[in-house]
Design a protein around this nucleic acid. Structure first.
Lengths: 199, 199
DNA sequence: GACATAATGGGAACACGTTCCACTTCGAGA
DNA sequence: TCTCGAAGTGGAACGTGTTCCCATTATGTC
């Protein structure tokens, strides 16, 4: 348990463990991408990642944990991709819209994946609180960063605004996934909401 | 199928059918209220409503349909309860906050029920679109009505605002259910959001 | 190198949502 | 009243998430 390397953050243990974890998440994304939430079957993930079912459950205690962890990894990648480039737009609202568009287009390229990750996020219960919080924090940070790319610190008000934007974003995703609205409608709704909220 | 009475709206058929439907929804609410989403087990619902499992599935093609239908019924009752009384508050924002508080307190009295209904709503997929749309419409109408209790017609802008409020409300519910925030925090967040959005 | 401990593999078993089927009951029209 | 089709009953059976068990393999210690 308390082995050598711990360069990142958590007690992820050895590199073999980390590799296996990555393999599992890769398999999850691949299956989700192909057939959505229902296609992410635990036995299929285990097969594809070349681990036993019991091992999969040792890494991720439920299908929801697994999918939310996959979502968190995607978000981390999105954030670092965004961090690298300047965000287009003159006003905070413009930049937020840009970021949301960018993120959303990434998602609409892969509707199955979006469906799987969104539904997992929405279906999660308290036992997934840690992972959920991680995702929520990432989302808020992405938005506040779009609002004030230069600032390192943001005030309370900005966080509240960013959370509202995040709420609308999630609700819009749910709207798409549940077939209540098309992607275009969802994007339009988000834009309108941002113009209402951010200034 | 095309029997006698159809006094309300849909093709609900005979009164025996309607009674059975009500009994099923009652059983659903009772079980959800007691033990949340997981306690709403189809066999248990069928037992409690005194119908066979197959009959239950004839009325509601899945657990999610069942729970979303129950949510819709609760919303309809909420709306008619609200419609009866004047809403306190001098400004649109105040009235919206009042309504949300009222609705939310109703829900927080019964956290299990809230959890069950919220998770069902969030987990729904396209096949539940009809019921989902019904709930969304009710929610929007409740908010727009709070904004303009006197008006019968509302403009496009108001609907957009109401939808954002609804989004925040749903996201806040999810936040509670997933243990990301306490009820008090959720209410505070909603209030702040409404002040930002409605004027 | 031998050992203790933890991690993994393989697979059976269980729970609950869902489907299916054979049989019975109900209700409306001849 | 009789008949026929629709609706309901009871229960078996299937799929998938989840748990459990134990033999096997890695990992770190002496």
């Amino acid at each position: 348990m308390l082995s050598s390397s711990a360069p990142t953050s958590e007690s992820l243990g050895s590199s073999a463990r980390r590799e296996r974890r990555e393999r599992i998440l890769d398999a999850t994304i691949a299956l989700a991408s192909h057939g959505g939430f229902d296609a992410v079957q635990m036995r299929a993930v285990a097969d594809r990642a070349d681990v036993a079912l019991g091992t999969l459950y040792r890494y991720f205690p439920s299908k929801i944990h697994l999918l939310v962890a996959a979502l968190a990894r995607e978000f981390e990648r999105t954030e670092s991709a965004l961090g690298a480039s300047r965000i287009e737009g003159d006003t905070p609202a413009d930049r937020v819209v840009t970021v949301l568009r960018w993120t959303t287009s990434g998602l609409e390229d892969d509707p199955h994946l979006t469906e799987a990750l969104t539904r997992a996020f929405m279906f999660a219960d308290r036992s997934v609180a840690t992972e959920i919080r991680l995702v929520a924090r990432l989302l808020t940070r992405i938005v506040t960063n779009a609002m004030h790319p230069d600032r390192d610190e943001v005030d309370d008000e900005d966080v509240a605004i960013a959370r509202v934007v995040g709420d609308v974003w999630l609700a819009s995703l749910v709207g798409c996934v549940t077939g209540r609205s098309t992607t275009a409608e969802a994007v339009a709704h988000m834009e309108r909401a941002v113009r209402l909220i951010v200034r």
